[in-house]
């Protein structure tokens, strides 16, 4: 059993790199996902993961499969969609869900057209689904840098993030940070998606962001505890997914997300705030 778990990582450098990348990504993306969920923006995360595609594709078309140009391209495309959709929501009658959908759909279509202009569907698969087993030094450095920036920003802005979720009108009445913190947060979402797409691809990097946070909601009822729990779930899912991928010869990105999906399902059923607990008969109740 120990051999089954430890041997792949001892034996192969690519597995060590994959594990390091996935762990760093869990540390960074999972707390972001918790706030996405608490702000009812989980699907926004998904939309943003599609939105960065044309930028990554542009980098890919111009420079081939290189991490730096693809990352910069993804950041630019993500920023345009996030700022555009956010500005439409704040300046017009349209809510952010509709403006975000409009912007990301156009962005995704542009991205697919760009990838199909050159290259085979193998290239497209690579951009969409990533290769956690082929992380090079550049990619690891990028993920590490993003993790550091994300954690530092989250800690510094914690009070404003909580205030903006809990009572946005109050935050606006005491501080001008409300609007700023919204866009900084969207920036963190884009940054983490871009960090994740090299490893997991554009479609799956959002999975490691959303699923652990959503699962953590069933276990604890405190924002800090939720962030910690989501990171733990992310780490377990990464580890489980990589082992599954190694032993069963499955593609690594989907295997990690599937593991997170299993944890989500178990949490949904067994967590103290899940579906089964209220159905259990309670023998005792307090008088007050």
């Amino acid at each position: 059993m120990v051999d089954w778990v430890v041997a792949p990582f001892l034996e192969f450098a690519f597995m060590q790199r994959a594990l390091a990348g996935a762990l760093l990504l869990s540390l960074s993306a999972c707390p972001v996902g918790v706030f996405l969920m608490l702000r009812r923006m989980s699907l926004t995360g998904d939309a943003m993961s599609h939105a960065i595609l044309p930028g990554a594709a542009a980098g890919f078309l111009l420079y081939g499969l290189e991490i730096v140009p693809m990352t910069i391209g993804g950041l630019i495309a993500g920023a345009i969609v996030a700022l555009g959709a956010g500005a439409v929501a704040r300046l017009t009658v349209q809510r952010e869900d509709a403006s975000m959908a409009a912007f990301y759909l156009v962005s995704l279509a542009i991205g697919v057209v760009m990838v199909s202009l050159r290259g085979s569907s193998v290239d497209l698969m690579h951009v969409l689904f990533g290769t956690v087993l082929a992380l090079n030094d550049d990619a690891l450095w990028l993920i590490g840098l993003v993790a550091a920036v994300t954690l530092a920003t989250t800690v510094l802005l914690w009070r404003a993030l909580v205030g903006e979720c809990l009572d946005p009108l109050f935050l606006r009445s005491v501080s001008g940070l409300g609007g700023v913190v919204h866009f900084v947060f969207l920036g963190l979402v884009v940054l983490n998606l871009v960090a994740g797409f090299q490893a997991l691809g554009t479609l799956l990097s959002v999975g490691l962001m959303i699923l652990p946070g959503a699962a953590a909601r069933f276990w604890v009822n405190d924002a800090v505890a939720m962030c910690v729990a989501s990171v733990g779930i992310g780490i377990v899912s990464s580890l489980g997914g990589l082992l599954l991928s190694y032993h069963a010869s499955l593609p690594s990105g989907p295997a990690i997300i599937l593991s997170a999906g299993v944890v989500y399902l178990v949490s949904l059923l067994a967590g103290p705030r899940g579906v089964l607990r209220p159905a259990l008969p309670r023998r005792h109740h307090r008088t007050a």
Partner: peptide, 19 residues
């Protein structure tokens, strides 16, 4: 615009007044 589903305790809500 208070979001009562946010996982906060009563002290967290009241402590916003310290802003």
């Amino acid at each position: 615009e208070l979001d009562c589903s946010f996982p906060a305790r009563v002290v967290d809500l009241v402590a916003l007044g310290l802003w």
